[in-house]
Nucleic acid binder design. Sequence first.
DNA 1: GCGGATTTGTACGTATGTATG
DNA 2: GCATACATACGTACAAATCCG
Lengths: 78, 78
Amino acid sequence: MLNPLSPVPLYVQLADVLATKIGRGELQPLHPLPSEKHLQQEFGVARGTARAAVRLLRERGLAMTVPQRGTYVTERKS
Amino acid sequence: MLNPLSPVPLYVQLADVLATKIGRGELQPLHPLPSEKHLQQEFGVARGTARAAVRLLRERGLAMTVPQRGTYVTERKS
DNA sequence: GCGGATTTGTACGTATGTATG
DNA sequence: GCATACATACGTACAAATCCG
């Protein structure tokens, strides 16, 4: 899935993977993203890396996080 | 300086301390902020905590970071 | 209401890479 | 070549809020 040898940081690669899934509709608006723990296990990264990827998605406006609840795909125009 | 028992996270407290110094003019626009290592030592926090504080300052528009150079106080309109 | 599981938040430490001076 | 400084990535631990049985 992710390439540790790429100059593109793992957390960026992971965010891109998730963003692509959102774009494809595999992850739908108002539905939860996989939890940090799930992302760790699925992609074999550390939690900090998974968190950084989710943070990037938030900064891109693709997701929003509710503390102690989870992170949800943002409802989007277009 | 910082209060570990406060409900306010250390990295927020640290960002506030730096923001106050900027506001007072103790840290001036276009001048460098203390390095992450310096912040660690001066405030007795881990590097991740110092980084989080600097990140918060960037998000607040108070500072900008140049990789491998340092973080600089942002030039501000009053 | 209680207890356990889940999930995010904070904080620590360490190591390595890369660019700058 | 060496020191500095930020970037990435790993790991660990505990806290706090939520959810569910």
